[in-house]
Amino acid sequence: MSNLKPYFQLARPANIVTAIADILAGMTITQFIFEPSAHSAYWLILATIGLYGGGVVMNDVFDAELDAIERPERPIPSGKVSPNAAALLGISLLVMGIIAAGMFSLLSAQLALIIAALAVIYDRYAKHSAVFGPITMGLCRGGNLLLGMSVVSQSLIEWGWVALVPIAYIGAITLISQDEVHGGKRRSLYIAASLYMSVHAIQFIVAFQQGNGSMALLLIALHALLIGHPLWKAFQNPIGPNIGKAVKAGVLSLIVMNAAWCVAFGNWPIALVVLLLLPLSILLARVFAVT
Rank of each mutant, 00 (worst) to 15 (best):
N3C: 03
N3M: 06
P6Y: 06
P6C: 10
Y7M: 05
F8Y: 09
Q9F: 01
Q9D: 15
L10T: 09
L10V: 11
R12T: 07
P13I: 09
V17H: 00
A19P: 02
I20S: 04
A21M: 02
A21Y: 00
G26E: 08
M27I: 05
I29G: 05
F34D: 09
F34A: 07
P36M: 12
S37A: 15
W43N: 13
L44G: 09
I45P: 09
I45D: 12
L46R: 08
A47L: 10
T48W: 04
G55A: 10
M58V: 08
F62C: 05
E65R: 13
E65W: 00
E65T: 04
R74P: 08
P75T: 07
P77L: 07
P77A: 04
V81P: 02
S82E: 11
A86D: 14
L88M: 14
L88V: 15
L89P: 00
L89G: 04
G90S: 11
S92P: 06
S92L: 13
S92C: 11
L93I: 11
G97K: 05
A100H: 03
G102N: 07
G102H: 03
L106G: 02
S108N: 06
Q110A: 12
L113R: 01
I115T: 09
A116F: 10
A117T: 15
L118C: 04
I121H: 05
Y122M: 08
R124V: 10
Y125H: 10
A126N: 03
H128A: 09
H128Q: 15
V131H: 03
I135K: 07
T136M: 13
T136D: 03
L139V: 09
L139G: 02
L139H: 01
R141G: 07
R141A: 10
G142M: 10
L145I: 14
S150Y: 06
S153W: 14
Q154L: 14
L156P: 00
E158Q: 12
W159C: 05
G160Y: 04
G160V: 13
V162H: 02
A163T: 07
L164E: 01
L164P: 01
I167F: 02
I167D: 00
I167N: 00
A168Q: 08
I170H: 01
I173M: 10
S177N: 11
V181K: 13
G183V: 06
G184R: 05
L189I: 13
I191E: 03
S194Q: 06
Y196D: 11
H200W: 15
I202E: 06
I202D: 07
F204R: 00
F208K: 10
F208H: 11
N212G: 05
N212A: 11
G213Q: 13
G213P: 12
L218H: 03
L218Y: 13
A221Q: 03
H223L: 14
H229S: 12
L231Y: 07
K233G: 05
I239K: 13
I243F: 02
V247Y: 09
K248I: 10
G250S: 12
V251G: 04
S253N: 15
S253H: 13
L254S: 08
V256T: 13
A259C: 11
V263L: 12
A264Y: 06
G266S: 11
P269E: 06
I270R: 01
A271L: 06
L272W: 12
V273A: 14
P279Q: 10
P279A: 10
L280Y: 01
L280S: 08
S281D: 08
A289P: 01
A289W: 00
T291G: 14
